[in-house]
């Protein structure tokens, strides 16, 4: 597991956005999204400008828009709540497509939809153009405490190992005729979760011992520059 390799959302490329330092990208994302969240809907020209800015960044990253659009399904539950807001909120009523809805709810729903859509797209762009290792180095440069960055590093590094463990357990369960249909199968699934915890914790202990035997003293040497 030595070299950096792409995580699940990463899209390999060499565009200016890919090459931009990760710490700048994280700061840009936070500032951009705080701006979007703070802008009221009545300032819609500014929101349109923000959307165009993001579109420009996406275009210059040369990540295919379809690649990002397909992954925007994570936004689905947000869309549902955005649609529900005008129906459940109170206050002055207004009419939309022949349905009487709450004015404040309509505003809040639209605002939520705009912010969340820009937020998901911007976060996807960051994830698609940034290697996990670069992101970790960027967070270190942003003075995120080193222990926290180390924990994050170990999590990212072993994420696929642990989720693969879980997948193998699923294959093992199902090849024995198990299928989860209702809560009666919970004990089996919970035992899988328990086994996964024990395996992960023991793996952590082995990793720690392996690191100690290689001279680990509590801090990691800075990663090689790629």
């Amino acid at each position: 597991m030595g070299g950096a390799h792409g995580h699940r959302l990463h899209f390999h490329g060499h565009s200016p956005v890919h090459r931009a330092p990760a710490h700048l990208k994280v700061v840009a994302l936070v500032v951009y999204m705080l701006g979007v969240v703070a802008l009221p809907l009545s300032w819609w020209p500014a929101l349109v400008a923000a959307a165009l800015l993001l579109a420009g960044v996406v275009a210059s990253s040369r990540v295919p828009p379809t690649y990002l659009l397909k992954r925007m399904v994570v936004e689905t539950p947000v869309v549902v709540s955005a649609v529900l807001l005008p129906l459940v909120a109170h206050g002055p009523r207004t009419e939309l497509l022949g349905v009487e809805v709450s004015e404040s709810g309509l505003h809040a729903g639209a605002k939520l939809l705009v912010s969340a859509t820009l937020g998901v797209l911007a976060s996807l762009t960051l994830a698609a153009t940034t290697e996990a290792q670069d992101l970790l180095r960027g967070l270190t440069r942003l003075r995120v405490p080193s222990l926290l960055v180390q924990i994050m590093g170990f999590m990212v590094r072993y994420l696929e190992v642990v989720t693969d463990d879980l997948r193998r357990m699923k294959v093992a369960r199902e090849s024995r005729g198990f299928s989860a249909r209702d809560p009666r199968q919970w004990p089996v699934l919970a035992r899988s979760a328990g086994a996964l915890f024990i395996r992960s914790f023991e793996r952590g202990e082995r990793v720690h011992l392996a690191m100690l035997s290689r001279g680990y003293t509590g801090t990691l040497p800075p990663g090689r520059a790629e």
């Binding site: 999590m155 590094r157 642990v162 996964l196 992960s200 914790f201 202990e205 990691l220």
Partner: peptide
């Protein structure tokens, strides 16, 4: 660091 990292991966996986 290593243990909390692995436990975080576990929470993510569950």
């Amino acid at each position: 660091a290593p243990l909390a990292g692995l436990v975080a991966a576990f929470v993510f996986a569950t």
